[in-house]
Amino acid sequence: MRLRVRKAAHFLERTGLALAGAACGTFVGAHVGTSFAALTTVGFLLAMIAIGAVGFYLGIDIPPLTFHDPDEEPRSRGKIDAAEFLSAFGTFLATLAAFVSVSAVVLRLNLHAVSSWLILIGWLVGVTMQICAGAIARLRRGRIR
């Protein structure tokens, strides 16, 4: 019973993260869509929402890499955990892009086209980093779920 409750709580947590990613994708898509007429489509907005949901679902809850086995000498001193780094930096980039987008929409700022492209690129790079981090961590554990 305890295991089922724990799994359900973890699933709800991950679903909440996915919803947060979808919300961030909505704001980035709305801002970029208002800046570029070619990107003012339902398909573009749905793609941004889906990418955000997948990225935040897979990339935020990364189990840390163990530095060494309890019975062995520490071997990985100074090594960087790629999944943890990609997750952290990707989350930062994606949420920064979402924050700037929300600020621009709420404050009705008319940002330069270059700023809107930077927001879109920052969002896409950040979410891609999250997805890669999630894939690395799940492959490392030997299963994808």
Rank of each mutant, 00 (worst) to 15 (best):
Met1Asp: 10
Met1Leu: 10
Ala9Ser: 10
Ala9Asp: 14
Ala9Lys: 10
Leu12Ser: 13
Arg14Phe: 03
Thr15Asn: 07
Leu17Ile: 00
Leu17Cys: 04
Gly21Glu: 08
Thr26Leu: 06
Phe27Arg: 04
Phe27His: 04
Gly33Leu: 12
Thr34Tyr: 01
Ser35Gly: 14
Thr40Phe: 07
Thr40Asp: 11
Gly43Trp: 11
Phe44Arg: 11
Leu46His: 03
Tyr57Lys: 13
Leu58Val: 07
Ile60Trp: 11
Asp61Arg: 15
Pro64Lys: 13
Leu65Pro: 00
Phe67Ile: 02
Phe67Glu: 02
His68Lys: 15
His68Gly: 12
His68Thr: 15
Asp71Arg: 13
Arg75Gln: 11
Lys79Asp: 15
Leu86Gln: 09
Ser87Cys: 07
Ser87Trp: 08
Phe92Asn: 01
Thr95Gln: 08
Thr95Gly: 02
Ser101Gly: 10
Leu107Phe: 08
Leu111Trp: 01
Val114His: 05
Ser115Ile: 10
Ser116Leu: 08
Ile119Gly: 03
Ile119Met: 01
Leu120Ser: 07
Ile121Gln: 02
Ile121Ala: 14
Leu124Trp: 10
Ile131Asp: 02
Ile131Thr: 00
Gly134Lys: 06
Gly134Val: 09
Ala135Gln: 14
Ala137Tyr: 00
Ala137Asp: 05
Leu139Arg: 13
Arg141Asp: 15
Arg141Lys: 12
